[in-house]
Design a protein around this nucleic acid. Structure first.
Lengths: 218, 218
DNA sequence: GACAGCTTGTAACCAATGTGACAATTGTTT
DNA sequence: AAACAATTGTCACATTGGTTACAAGCTGTC
């Protein structure tokens, strides 16, 4: 949209997404070692069981972090947005462990990839990097708690409303281009149940249902 | 049991719980600044909305970490044991945020309390401390994922069996001294449901039900 | 236009879980 | 002994959510 890779330098991209939180020296180092990668909607950025060797810093776009059951179930944990990083990945990098989650692009965007070695080096060297890493862990932790609140304490209709709100937010649109099937997947439910609850929301005047999209009203 | 506060020095306690992972200098520093506190079963160590100024290192005993719904629900997230620390608390210390969880003693034990200032200082100074902190975050993260797997993908009978196993493990006893009501609380369920499922487990020969306790068989 | 594939709506039914009620048992207090 | 509280067992019933099945509509292709 207004953040075209082609018309901005790496320096500008990093500056725009992380300028507020990192000191000058660190920004310069990041700019130097980072590799910028772009992704398209529904690209799988990280998958289960994968070993990860670089830490991603999200410059633009949104990523959904999914958890999967051994046989079939699937569940949206949370979204990542500009300025975020994947706590799970950091953990993988450092502990040399397999990924426990799947990261899928919710829409198109850019990530800056930092080599693990650097990220460890910066931990000792830059206080702002340390707080950034901690802050990230903390945010992700709280988002997992929120995910737990949702599935443990809320009924499906509330979870659905939350999902619609969050999806609308990360896609910056009151119209959500998802099928009932996709929504059922994100909530570990079934299509019929979602259709039923969506219809109820429509009858309450909260949404309008169309083919392949849902409009949030009010 | 075999870890009486009275008959061990602080140095020995720290050594026993953390000797394997920290370097000599760090162990010495910890021993110097730490305050040892003991707790009894069901003591509330951290509560919701509380600000925390010291980071706890668990020397002995077990702690259950609970999440609570706004009105009434309650849910066990995971247990902490010897050598663990509370990721949530670290986050609180650093970010100066309120606690999002409640920590209750599952049985009696000891914690070493580290002032926040020190823990930040050590982050820059000791590599083993950094990896410990990361490792802790990572473990807690994975435990939250496991909690999510439980509530999202498993039925109540499986969750109940998992609960019995884990509780047996952290209390080092095949006999679990809990009422059905308490178990229902930990699983965010109701007493009747738990009694029903426990009875089914008894009929399968997996457990024996007694008043105020449950024996795991096999 | 005919066909196929995807998407949505809806009905009927089932399984899992939650709720309210009440009895029986045990242990404790008076 | 009587009263009481806590714990457990059980029944009947309501609710939520999942499953199967089928119809209907939309879209794109040949």
């Amino acid at each position: 949209m207004f953040c075209q890779f082609e018309i901005m330098t790496v320096k500008e991209l990093i500056e725009e997404a992380f300028g507020g939180i990192f000191e000058k020296d660190l920004l310069a180092e990041i700019t130097e070692v980072v590799k910028i990668t772009d992704f398209e909607e529904n690209d799988i950025l990280i998958d289960f069981g994968q070993y990860i060797k670089t830490m991603p810093l999200l410059i633009s776009g949104a990523i959904r972090i999914m958890r999967e059951d051994f046989d079939e179930g699937e569940l949206l944990l949370y979204f990542l947005e500009k300025g975020d990083t994947c706590a799970m990945t950091m953990a993988c990098c450092i502990g040399d462990k397999k990924s426990e989650i799947r990261a899928i692009a919710e829409n198109k965007g850019l990530v800056a990839m930092v080599p693990v070695a650097k990220m460890e080096e910066w931990m000792g060297k830059y206080k702002t990097w340390r707080s950034f890493v901690f802050q990230s862990y903390n945010n992700r932790f709280n988002e997992l708690l929120w995910a737990i609140d949702n599935i443990a304490f809320m009924k499906m209709n509330e979870r659905l409303e939350n999902y619609l709100d969050e999806t609308s937010k990360v896609n910056r649109s009151r119209i959500i281009y998802k099928t009932h099937q996709e929504i059922a997947g994100a909530l570990n439910s079934s299509r019929v149940v979602i259709s039923r609850l969506l219809k109820a929301l429509e009858n309450e005047g909260k949404i309008r249902l169309n083919r392949n999209n849902i409009e949030l009203l009010n």
